[in-house]
């Protein structure tokens, strides 16, 4: 077992642990926005760590380059998907958690809804 394999397996293990805590946040946290936040962050970083570990362990250019491309792709698309989902959830009528402190998005959401009502 060479040194690059040891480093790569450490990366993969750290990534899997981050994935696990992210999904634990998905189960434990009280409201959709908090869940989205915790899960998106942890699972994105965990998957990037696993991809980096794959690239290091195999040390084969055909696999490593594809793993790097896939990591870049996940890093770009995951936040985009997260804020599309957050916007969709708010506009579909899910309220913030009842202990939330401040909500500045309410008037904007009503503006969007009234514009859409006029368009129809």
């Amino acid at each position: 077992m060479s040194s690059n394999m040891i480093v790569g397996y450490i990366f993969i293990t750290v990534g899997a642990i981050f994935d696990f805590f992210g999904c634990m946040g998905l189960v434990r946290l009280p409201n959709i926005y908090n869940r989205l936040q915790a899960a998106t962050k942890c699972v994105t970083l965990g998957t990037i760590f696993i991809l980096a570990g794959t690239a290091i362990v195999t040390a084969d250019p055909a696999i490593s380059i594809k793993a790097g491309l896939c990591a870049v792709f996940v890093l770009i698309t995951s936040p985009t998907g997260a804020h599309a989902l957050a916007r969709g959830a708010y506009l579909s009528g899910v309220k913030l958690w009842e202990k939330s402190v401040v909500d500045k998005f309410k008037e904007r959401a009503e503006e969007i809804k009234s514009q859409r009502g006029e368009a129809r």
Binding site: F21, M24, G25, Q37, K41, C42, K99, S100, V101, F105
Partner: peptide, 19 residues
Amino acid sequence: NLDVVYRVVHPDMPIHPGI
């Protein structure tokens, strides 16, 4: 991520969310 992990595993979940 370390921040989120702290908030998730803490038994009281110290969160004050808002937009």
